[in-house]
């Protein structure tokens, strides 16, 4: 049974530019599928990031989330939204 948990959300690269902030907090269910988390982030919580959804990777507590993983969040878990940087 999923319970709500407060997490930290960190934005990198283009996500930071679009959100105009580096980090924020959100309260979301502590267990869900990767796809559910993705929908929540890109289509509900941060609509501005919808345009970069396909190019972003998500990481929870410094670990990459793969397509079919189940996401488990603890209080203050860190969800990172990471698009690739291309400049050099």
């Amino acid at each position: 049974m999923a319970t709500p948990v407060e997490i930290r959300v960190r934005f990198f690269g283009k996500a930071r530019e679009l959100m105009a902030c580096e980090e924020t907090r959100a309260t979301i269910p502590n267990t869900m599928s990767y796809q559910e988390l993705k929908n929540l982030i890109f289509h509900e919580l941060y609509i501005d990031l919808e345009s970069i959804e396909s190019a972003c990777i998500l990481a929870v507590d410094h670990t990459y989330l793969s397509d079919h993983s189940t996401v488990s969040l603890r209080p203050y878990s860190e969800v990172a939204i990471i698009p690739p940087l291309s400049g050099g």
Binding site: S51, A55, I57, G87
Partner: peptide, 27 residues
Amino acid sequence: VFPVPPSPHLVTNCAEGGVLGPIVGTM
């Protein structure tokens, strides 16, 4: 890791977004 390339209009390059020397120096 990045199977899908970002949309061209959403790619910010150094000419547009700028970059600090020590950042590229570090990397």
